[in-house]
Write a protein that binds this DNA or RNA. Structure first.
Lengths: 341, 341
DNA sequence: CTGAAAGCGCTAACAA
DNA sequence: TTGTTAGCGCTTTCAG
């Protein structure tokens, strides 16, 4: 394992010169640079990450904090992770997976104080999140994926729910649908003020008004059974219903199953749009779900980019970046059936 | 940020004493240990990871090498990752995600030479995998998740495909099924010698013989369409077919859809067992899939455990650990219909 | 444009 | 049972 001293000797220069060609922190004549580079190549030299980290006070590693529940990660979260990983790698950083949820304060305190990580990406952010207070107190650079209650002074990247709901409703309206249900997350989520649930609810109302159509919001559990119950409820209170927008993938599948069993054809009788859904899941359904595809990898990449900017000394001013989900029309939406009048 | 020197001063001991209470490398009297611990607590001391790594020549970080294709990770791979992460954390190690596939030699060469990682976990191992040769050459400790062509001298953890196929077939047989199809990975996979495809094929034949029943293997694409085609082909060549074992989740869903459209009831007319399937996906289907649930987290944890043992100086002898998938009976298997005779 | 040398914070001989 | 000290391999002043 060649060290910097070996390289210096072989190139006939001092260690500091080798260091400078590596970091580019000061001008080096073309001639010596080439000798040094050659020596490195001949010795298969790679700088020792630990020594470098110790001397420079930075590890070039960022931590991805996410709670690792037994249930594992969904497709969207996985895309965050891969997007962030690749963005980090492209910038010469590494990404460490840290199973630290909203409540694991001590774990994080230790992690952040060990100086192993230059900054943090927080996933599964909750409205009040201990990790946020803690990192702020420790003055550690970090970026949220999602949003907390009060985000002043914080940097965050999130899905643009307002835009996404607007686009979904516009799609249904353009197909002639005039009565739409929005199957949201559960009542409990809404009551607890869960961001996506609240924001999509508001956006749904705005969209209805803008298009001058009618609709209902039905909260339900994020399960297939929840979807079934929700669609029954929605059809009961709005028999004219021809379009459904649904927040959760499992609920979406439940809705398809329930409609099928009720003898209704999708999309002939009812059109269904699934929100924040990944392509693989959308394609598992039959017919494949028309969906608003979550910009998973893009979110992860954006968060990483912002974090790295801040590591470069950027100030800690408020910053928000919202990415909309893209409409992907598959098999569950079609022209609205003309109602009898 | 308190350093070890600060702690030593405050406790009235030398730095080495502090170091030794931290590492436990040599006996310390209870009295001084307590003073040191107290000093640490008062100063919120956390050892600097980089300094520690430099001095001890180990980072306490292991790398998880996996190709990050655009498609993202499936549920099974995600479970590997979370299982490995938690096992590492429990042992005081961290886990770094490294997007390095079977062919990215140089990337890995650099990574391994930087001394940032103590060892490696390889996912998505291919029959011939450049990463394996390279790590072996560099004498870096590593464990495979999956198997290569020749695994002598290597440590690996894998799903026990033989056992899993055997169990699946036994389940169908116990329900009275006597003609079974096995819908495998694609012809291309088989031709390329892809391990799971080959091993399950062999195991299927063995199981048929053992139970004295008949069956066919149909290779197909890992897609819903592939599943549809496969089940059509199977029923054509074996009209007596009442049981299906299928390797891929998407194909399994395709099979269910195709059978439904053909007017056949599952499990009344045909029973379906899906292999190496995660619970969430199994439950998306309707009826929910009876499946052999992949031991994802257990595989990740086992691989980590073995790697950490080897870091502790354990020799590099061949080691293989195979974990079977567990049968979870859901809604797609039932008693075989009696055939007309 | 280049070199010498002082650390970075810790571990692990060696010495007592 | 404890202290002293020489590095680990690199970055970065300070000099030239």
């Amino acid at each position: 394992m060649a060290t910097m001293t070996d390289v210096a000797k072989r190139a006939g220069v001092s260690v500091s010169t080798v260091s400078y060609v590596l970091t580019g922190t000061r001008p080096i004549s073309e001639a010596t640079r080439e000798r040094v580079l050659a020596a490195m190549a001949e010795l298969d030299y790679q700088p020792n990450a630990m020594a470098r980290g110790l001397a420079s006070r930075q590890s070039n590693i960022v931590g991805l904090l996410l709670p690792l529940t037994g249930r594992g990660l969904g497709a969207t979260e996985t895309a965050f992770v891969t997007g962030a990983t690749e963005a980090a790698r492209a910038a010469g950083y590494h990404l460490m997976l840290c199973p630290v949820g909203a409540d694991d304060g001590d774990e994080l305190q230790a992690l952040a104080t060990q100086r192993l990580l230059d900054g943090f990406l927080l996933m599964e952010v909750r409205l009040t999140d201990r990790r946020v207070e803690l990192l702020r107190k420790l003055q550690a650079p970090f970026v949220l994926i999602g949003r907390t209650k009060n985000s002043t002074g914080l940097a965050c990247v999130d899905i643009d729910f307002e835009q996404t709901v607007g686009d979904a409703v516009a799609h249904l309206v353009s197909l002639g649908h005039e009565t739409i249900a929005y199957v949201n997350h559960s009542k409990a989520s809404l009551a607890s003020g869960y961001g996506p649930a609240k924001r999509t609810e508001a956006a749904f109302k705005v969209a209805l008004k803008r298009h001058g159509i009618t609709g209902v919001m039905v909260p339900t559990d994020d399960t297939a059974a929840g979807g079934r119950a929700a669609i029954r409820e929605a059809r009961e209170c709005c028999p004219a219903l021809t379009g459904v927008l649904v927040m959760n993938e499992s609920a979406a599948l439940g809705i398809l199953a329930e409609l099928r069993e009720a003898g209704l054809d999708v999309p002939w009788d009812v059109s269904v749009v699934s929100m924040v859904t990944s392509a693989p899941v959308a394609e598992l359904a039959s017919p494949p779900l028309t969906a608003m595809t979550s910009p998973g990898a893009a979110v992860g990449a954006a968060a990483t980019r912002i974090l790295l900017e801040r590591l470069g000394g950027g100030a800690g001013s408020t910053y928000e970046e919202l990415l909309p989900c893209a409409l992907e029309v598959r098999g569950t939406t079609g022209a609205a059936k003309k109602r009898k009048r």
